[in-house]
Design a protein around this nucleic acid. Structure first.
Length: 434
RNA sequence: GUGAGAGUAGCUCAAGUGGUUAGAGCACCAGGUUGUGGUCCUGGGGGUUGCGGGUUCGAGUCCCGUCUCUCACCCCA
């Protein structure tokens, strides 16, 4: 029993300081990049009514999330995503919010799934959304924020790629190939499997899912399109030509943003969910076989579904789990982020000077400067060792000369250089010492 | 929710086809060192071998169940 209670619940993590430092680095970068791109932060309650999640995802969703009843019998659920909350919040104030609405959030989410690599039962997910614009510029801007973040943490275009598609163009190409719209949703689900299966397996699967030989042939013509320029070989109707123009426009915007190196047209990216209505994208790493780092797209009718006006919207989510795994694997996490951030560690050369050391520590803390000391009275050498372990940048040595001549010693723990200065002077300019 | 593999100290791993008191490195703590650490030496603490049951004279080792992790499905918001 003792052992069992020591374990965190299935699929959850304990956020020890080392992990917390890495997450803090990611969260801070998410937040900074969001703000730099003009997004503002929002959040909602960590639990919502179960009904809210049923609106978008149907009854079966209940088995995939943690839900419970309060004492009055209300059905509640821990949020598995934040988009319904966003939709609810926007719908409530839709008329008073300036457009476009550019919001971001870093919610802690929970899903009652079976954990596996890159997927846990509790995780964080950066969400970027632009509501109220139907322009591909809004889609381009979401991609830009995502890529700008990834670029900033060291995931360059030789490591990752931005796989883009448009559901509307696939639809119009299917219509051009004489496949009626009522079949499209089913075909999207089949297309979603393309990358996971071998060519033969895919053919088999498609037939098993009820595709005729002609349909399969048309679908594979689409799936094997090499790039955006090849798409024109299949466009017949005016509608599909217009949709292709949108993709070209998107690519132009990405070029203007300077992230065209990441862009790749990928006809198999359709996203599993029915509510996507236009451009969709996923971000993958090229080197390993992890699941998607981020995914999103346009969802023009979702706000209406939640009782708001019919507002166009686009956005994406990026989870911490896959991202952290990739960064860990590529050794992209800066070593200094796990440092404590402690600036000074005050040491007494002899225990008779301990109170003096405490006094100096107190003066530093009063000025808002981080400072600590050894809780045990031990030799100078051991205290220096503690200073090192605490991750302090400088050691301050308080000794006989401090008592006699008001002098303290500053030792840089990285360079080992040390100097003596007057105690008052040190306290006065402690925040300038680097 | 279905199927498969794995679990030995905080971490990485040892321990002939079942056989004394389950070991090592790293990490942690203390001392050597009464004014100089990160990088020396010595010592110490730490395990109901994930948990529960079974077979056996005897189980870390074999069998069953269970929990957790990993992988493949379902799903992927």
């Amino acid at each position: 029993m003792g052992k069992k209670i020591l374990q965190p619940p299935k699929g959850t993590r304990d956020y020890y300081p080392e992990l917390m430092a890495k997450l803090r680095w990611i969260f801070d970068t998410w937040r900074n990049v969001s703000i730099q791109h003009g997004f503002v932060e929002y959040d909602g309650p960590i639990f919502e009514s179960l009904e809210l999640f049923r609106i978008k995802s149907g009854d079966e969703i209940a088995s995939q999330l943690f839900h419970f009843e309060d004492r009055a019998g209300r059905e509640l659920a821990i949020r598995p995503e934040i988009t319904p909350t966003l939709a609810r919040m926007v719908a409530q104030k839709a008329n008073s919010l300036p457009r476009p609405i550019k919001w971001f959030s870093i919610p802690r989410l929970s899903r009652a799934e079976r954990p596996q690599r890159g997927r846990l039962r509790e995780f964080f997910q950066w969400n970027i959304d632009i509501v109220g614009s139907d322009s591909v510029l809004a889609d381009a801007e979401c991609m830009f924020v995502a890529i700008d973040f990834l670029r900033r943490i060291g995931l360059t275009s030789d490591i990752i790629e931005l796989q883009v598609n448009s559901r509307t163009i696939i639809s119009s190409l299917l219509v051009d190939a004489n496949i009626t719209p009522d079949r499209h949703e089913h075909i999207f689900a089949i297309m979603d499997k393309y990358e996971k299966l071998s060519d033969r397996q895919f053919d088999e699967y498609a037939k098993q899912q009820g595709l005729s030989a002609d349909e399969l042939s048309a679908v594979k013509d689409i799936l094997t399109l090499k790039d955006i320029d090849a798409v024109s070989s299949l466009t017949k109707s005016q509608e599909s030509k217009e949709e292709l123009d949108k993709l070209h426009q998107l690519r132009d915007y990405l070029h203007a943003f300077g992230i065209e190196d990441y862009f790749v047209y990928k006809p198999s990216v359709v996203r599993g969910l029915a509510y996507y209505t236009g451009i969709v994208f996923e971000i993958f790493d090229k080197s390993t076989k992890l699941r998607a780092i981020a995914g999103g797209g346009r969802y023009d009718h979702l706000i209406k579904l939640f009782g708001g006006p019919d507002m166009p919207a686009t956005g994406f989510g990026m989870g911490d789990v896959v991202l952290l795994e990739l960064l860990e694997e590529l050794d992209k996490i800066p070593a200094d982020i796990t440092r404590s951030g402690l600036k000074f560690f005050v040491i007494d050369a002899d225990k008779q000077f301990f109170n003096l050391a405490l006094k100096i520590t107190s003066e530093l803390r009063k000025k808002g400067i981080s400072a600590d000391y050894s809780s045990k009275r031990q030799s100078l050498g051991k205290q220096l060792k503690s200073a090192n372990q605490a991750g302090a940048k400088f050691a301050i040595i308080v000794g006989q000369e401090t008592a006699d001549e008001n002098l303290i010693t500053i030792k840089n723990l990285q360079t080992s250089q040390q100097q003596q200065i007057k105690t008052d002077e040190f306290i006065a300019k402690a925040d300038e010492i680097e």
